[in-house]
């Protein structure tokens, strides 16, 4: 039941976060992946760990959606970093 209107997600932000080890970057990616996106037609995010780098690729339909989504994910990443720092 498609509504026929597909807006392109051409507002893009690529974020790279260097952890101290590749294991930490992998853990972060695995923790983030299951988080659901409420409106995938408006905003999408992909996570990839490359060596010690966590690469996050954001795409949104406009700057407002991008701002909300990016800031929220970064908050999650900061929590992950803090947790690893305390427990690893």
């Amino acid at each position: 039941m498609k509504n026929g209107r597909e807006m392109s997600l051409d507002y893009v932000l690529n974020l790279e976060i260097p952890f101290t080890t590749s294991r930490q970057a992998q853990i972060a990616a695995k923790v983030l992946v299951p988080d659901p996106i409420l409106k995938p037609q408006d905003f999408q995010v992909e996570y990839l760990s490359q060596d010690n780098i966590l690469a996050v690729h954001f795409r949104g339909i406009d700057d407002r959606v991008l701002r909300v989504g990016v800031s929220s994910v970064i908050d999650s990443i900061k929590t992950i970093i803090e947790t690893i720092d305390e427990l690893d």
């Binding site: 976060i17 101290t20 970064i74 900061k78 970093i81 720092d85």
Partner: peptide
């Protein structure tokens, strides 16, 4: 700690 430095840097970047 290095991860605390990362967290602070990420806060500024955010």
């Amino acid at each position: 700690t290095p991860l605390s430095l990362l967290r602070m840097q990420l806060t500024g970047l955010q």
